[in-house]
Each structure stands twice: as structure tokens, then as C-alpha cells.
Design a protein around this nucleic acid. Structure first.
Lengths: 192, 192
DNA sequence: GTCTATACGGCGATAGAC
DNA sequence: GTCTATCGCCGTATAGAC
């Protein structure tokens, strides 16, 4: 891990804990045990740190959903399963980056902000397409696609806030339960 | 609406757009068309504004779920329905306050932070109880209660980010679709 | 590549005139 | 109740020695 990577990692942790604006370059410097001025030998600005974190992870998400959606051997059901798995994995492996992606992107400016918004839109488009296809082929219930899209996405995007606490469950059990809940709901049908 | 209320309202809007730390007292003053120093005739500090927004709305949520949970004429299913309705209503009526409650509470300090955390815990406890009762009486599927709790809560808590865009749906249709999706899932069962 | 020193502006908050 | 003026501090970032 290069010095630059170390700085970005520590900054991400601080951003996720206190928010971008509340973290100073002096805070970040202290976390990697150098002086604030020295940070500028590795990065041009505080903004650049945020951009690296947000755009990097946004790319990971977009690339993955694109691959999943393009794979002709996956059913709608399998595509959704893959997407859920990806969110769980990343929320467990890099919860700080996920937190920053979710809530600190507002502090991006100019070109980086545009890039982020484009990525986010692309991601939502891919998932929207999967859902609409599912409705058409009657594997998904005929409800408003936007409500389905954001209902699921809301849960997946905020996994980072609580999955770490799930100590009593294995990752496999967590995945199984979450998938069941998201796809089949929570009400136990007692049809005769 | 008193001057104090006006200040809090405008501050809430700014906090929801840029985040607490990125909004200055000068920004808030400009929004209500006075000078920053004049704000202190109505409020003791910037912190106090955040406290007013967060604790007020947290109380609204907690009081409501407590009433719902205590009402003996409600089934588990009806309780969940009431809670979903409450989240939709508040997300539509005061989306800025909901946004601040969701994401800016980290910037509370001392006693106010403790109060908020206690309220949030109480809210989650009430919902947890409803879910556990539902599982026991077999109206809710036997899955991990924590996964059910946070899966639903994640969607409800982030309604404010997208419900305003749902121009093509009436509130009633939105509620019906969201309830179906959360409670019965999205997969269309084709049992024979 | 890290340091010290520093520039320059904005921050929350207060004092006191009107 | 709003204003002007101001305090002391901290923000990002740069210059230049080592």
C-alpha cells in the first residue's frame, strides 16, 4: 500500500465517522502521523481524496451490475441475487467507503460531481432494466417499477450501517435471510 | 410562525442540502435576510438549531410508533401498515427535517446526542417488538428479526430521497405499492 | 518526502450602539 | 431586534529549508 493509499484509507475512515466537511487536513495528517503540509506531496487537495474514494467505489458497483445484467445465463432472480451479494460483500469489506459513497458525494464539485451523478444514474438504469424485464416476463409482481427499484436499493445502500453488527449470523445466513425478505417479503401466507 | 421557527426551517433546508458542517451561521442569516449576529437573539448557538430539528422529529416518530404498538385493536399487519404510512407522510411533508434527522445527527454533542440515541433506540425497540410478536404468532416469516427490522427500516428511513419524484403516483397508490413490496416481496409466485 | 512558517479567509460567537 | 465591529481560532493551501 503506497503512502497515497494509506492517506486515502485513513481519510475515508474519518469522513465516514464525522462527515467530509467536519474533517480537516490536519485531522487526516494526524491519522497518518505526518504534518498537514506533507499531505500535499501525495495529493493535490482535500477534494481529490474524496473524489478518489467516491469514484473508485462507484466504478466497482457499476462495472459489476453491468456484467451481471449482460450475462445471458442469469435469470432475473439470479441477477437480483448477484446484486444483493455484491452489496453485502462491499458493505462488509469496505464499510467506510460505502458510507462515504452514500452520504459524502454531495461535497464533490464540478467535473467529479457530474461523473458521480452519471455513474449513479447508470447503476439505477441497469437495475431498473432488470426490474422492468422481470415484470414483463411475469417473474416480478406488477407494481410500480420506481417503487420496487428504490425500495430495494434503499435497503442495499444502507447495509453498511448495520451488517457489521450481525455477529450472530454467518454471511451466508445473512444473505439468505436478506434475499428472502427482499424478494418474498415478510408476511407469512397461510393459504390453505 | 415565529422568527425562531423561520430560522430553524431555513436552517433545516440548508442542512439537508449541504450538511450541517458546510452551512455557516452567515448562510443561515442570509436565508432569513438578517445579519449573522442577529440570529443569536433567537437562538443560543448553531448546535441549538440542529437539536431543535432532530429531537423534535425524533419525538414525533417515537410517540407515533408507541401509540401504534400500544393499541390493542391493531394486528401486526395493521401496525406495520400504520408505521409505513407515517414514514411516507413525514417524508412528503417535511423531507428536509427527515434528511437532517437521518444524516446530520452525528454533529450533535453531549446531552443532545445522548437524547437522540436513546430515542432512536426506543424506536427500534418498538419495531423490534412488533416483528418478534409477529414471528411468534406466525404472521411474520421466521427469519432473523434484526435483518427484518433493518431491511424495512432502511427503506422507510430513506423515503425522503425519492418519494418527492413519484409524480406519476398518488399517495394512496404509493402507499399500496410500498406496503405490498415490503410485506409481500416482489417475486411473483406461480404456484400451480 | 517531511518539516516549519505563514498567508489569507471564513468560522462561531460576543459587545455594545441604535 | 437588528446592526457594525471585532475577537480568537481554525480552515486549506503554498513557499522554501533540509
Amino acid at each position: 500500500m503506497t503512502r497515497r493509499d494509506e492517506i486515502i484509507k485513513q481519510a475515508g475512515l474519518l469522513f465516514s465517522l464525522k462527515g467530509y466537511s467536519a474533517v480537516s487536513m490536519r485531522d487526516i495528517a494526524k491519522a497518518v502521523d505526518i504534518k498537514a503540509a506533507s499531505l500535499y506531496n501525495h495529493l493535490p487537495s482535500k477534494q481529490a481524496i474524496l473524489e478518489a474514494i467516491v469514484l473508485n467505489l462507484a466504478n466497482t458497483f457499476v462495472n459489476h451490475i453491468h456484467d451481471v445484467n449482460q450475462n445471458p445465463s442469469f435469470s432475473t432472480r439470479q441477477k437480483l441475487s448477484e446484486i444483493i451479494q455484491q452489496h453485502i460483500d462491499l458493505s462488509l469489506q469496505q464499510p467506510e467507503s460505502v458510507a462515504v459513497l452514500n452520504t459524502e458525494w454531495i461535497h464533490l464539485n464540478g467535473e467529479a460531481l457530474d461523473k458521480f451523478k452519471a455513474k449513479r444514474f447508470t447503476y439505477e438504469q441497469e437495475l431498473r432494466e432488470i426490474i422492468k424485464n422481470g415484470i414483463q416476463e411475469q417473474s416480478i409482481t406488477k407494481r410500480d417499477p420506481e417503487v420496487i427499484l428504490f425500495s430495494i436499493l434503499s435497503t442495499l445502500r444502507t447495509l453498511n450501517l448495520w451488517v457489521a453488527k450481525r455477529k450472530h449470523l454467518t454471511v451466508e445466513d445473512l444473505k439468505a435471510d436478506l434475499e428472502t425478505i427482499l424478494l418474498y417479503g415478510i408476511i407469512r401466507q397461510n393459504k390453505s
